[in-house]
């Protein structure tokens, strides 16, 4: 476009704004992040494997990835239900409920952590009803799962909600006219249409849960091999002055996050293509 190309000469400030952006991005984000990769590059392969694949670290990966997957899955199911209810139905207090969905984004993670621990500890408001049934939540795998579910809650709701809002009622009317009952319409028409955004929300919640620290450390009990998440293990290694070990695990987590980020970008492209048709 000729107009856009000429913009370079008409509007001022390109050099200043881009220069500042790149300098600030470099200093705050890129240089420190590269420090982690360069530090690990100085390790021998043998040391690296020993640091990232010891039994204690493997147990932490298993807990972090497993609980994050489970939490992401629960959020996918309930996030869809919440988004559906918020878009399609009306009930008193709907606007407040809608605003409340963002609470896990706004509430500091340490506050969420101590609040959840207090609720689910054996004498807490919820824990005291579960204790007689033999269900322990605080200081177990379930506690980690509960905290990660809390932290990932808004993602699926907020990715599915706009798609559901823009969905044309015509496609459901057409399905109904052609003889589909409501269940068939939901399963064959609506769910496939919502699938890309559901998966995007799931991946976002999963990625957030993998790195989460504050809301988990209080409720998890932090027992090595049992309830020790990967971010906590990184902190433990740092406190023992094992900088190389901490950095090696951090690099494994960073690479996982970047792969997830790539996947999320691809999913979003897919979902956008779905909706321009």
């Amino acid at each position: 476009m000729t107009r856009a190309r000429s913009s370079r000469s008409i509007l001022p400030g390109f050099g200043l704004s881009l220069g500042f952006t790149l300098a600030y991005l470099g200093l705050i984000v890129l240089v420190p992040l590269s420090a982690a990769f360069l530090r690990t590059a100085g390790m021998s392969w043998h040391d690296f494997v020993a640091a990232v694949a010891s039994p204690r670290v493997i147990a932490a990966y298993r807990l972090s990835f497993g609980a994050s997957l489970a939490a992401g899955f629960v959020n996918m199911v309930f996030g869809l239900i919440v988004a559906w209810v918020l878009v399609r139905y009306s009930f008193p207090g709907k606007r407040i409920v809608d605003a409340l969905v963002d609470l896990p984004f706004a509430l500091p993670t340490a506050v969420a952590g101590i609040a959840l621990t207090s609720l689910y500890s054996p004498n807490g408001w919820i824990g005291r009803w579960l204790a007689p049934l033999g269900i322990r939540v605080a200081f177990t795998w379930t506690g980690v799962f509960i905290a990660l579910t809390f932290i990932g809650l808004p993602f699926v709701v907020r990715t599915v909600q706009p798609v559901l809002q823009e969905l044309e009622p015509e496609i459901e009317e057409a399905a109904s006219t052609l003889g589909a009952n409501r269940r068939q319409t939901v399963i064959r028409i609506l769910l496939p249409e919502l699938l890309p955004s559901l998966l995007t929300g799931f991946a976002l919640a999963f990625a957030r849960a993998l790195g989460e620290y504050g809301s988990v450390v209080f409720i998890s009990g932090n027992m090595p091999m049992k309830t020790e998440i990967v971010p906590l293990l990184i902190i433990t290694k740092l406190e023992q002055y094992d900088y190389r070990g901490a950095t090696a695990i951090a690099v494994v987590m960073l690479v996982s996050s970047f792969v997830l980020l790539l996947l999320i970008n691809l999913l979003q492209k897919w979902s956008r293509r779905f909706h321009t048709i």
Binding site: A35, A36, R39, T109, G211, I234, L238, Y243, A250, L261
Partner: peptide, 15 residues
């Protein structure tokens, strides 16, 4: 946004 908060702190320790 994709980086764990713990790692965000760690990288500054490394620098």
């Amino acid at each position: 946004f994709a980086v764990s908060p713990v790692i965000s702190g760690l990288v500054y320790v490394l620098v």
